[in-house]
Design a protein around this nucleic acid. Structure first.
Length: 110
DNA sequence: TTTTTGACGATTC
DNA sequence: AGAATCGCCAAAA
């Protein structure tokens, strides 16, 4: 499985600290600043079959909206997980998202 | 092999 | 300010 691209995405997602959240675009930018955020979403789509625990709930769109909640076991699971992380989710959106925003390009300092 | 779509993002109208 | 459209790249049909 040469899913390097996916693995890179998973790796970054796994590195997201608890209580923080990032966006698809941020990950895309971190991976190479050439791939589009859509690819990250695609990678997450493939993450279903992955045996790894991908905290996809910490990965949301740029607005902090839980766009992929429907891809979880239950649409409400994503919000629950985020709340369990200490984040506040209201109306499928992370409150103070930019406040809890976790940018791999900055936190990982590459 | 070509076409369509996809958990996004930014720009333009 | 809001809505619609284009752009990114890859995988599945």
């Amino acid at each position: 499985m040469n899913t390097n691209f996916f693995e890179d995405v998973y790796d970054v997602v796994r590195l997201i600290p608890k209580g923080r959240a990032t966006s698809y675009g941020a990950i895309a930018n971190f991976l190479g600043s050439k791939i589009s955020a859509r690819m990250v979403g695609w990678a997450m789509n493939a993450a279903h079959g992955q045996d790894d625990n991908i905290p996809a709930q910490r990965v949301v769109n740029r607005m902090g909206l839980l766009t992929g909640k429907m891809h979880f076991n239950t649409p409400t699971k994503m919000q629950e997980l985020l709340e369990a992380d200490g984040l506040i989710v209201e109306d499928d959106q992370i409150k103070d998202f930019k406040k809890h925003f976790w940018d791999p390009a900055i936190e990982l300092e590459i």
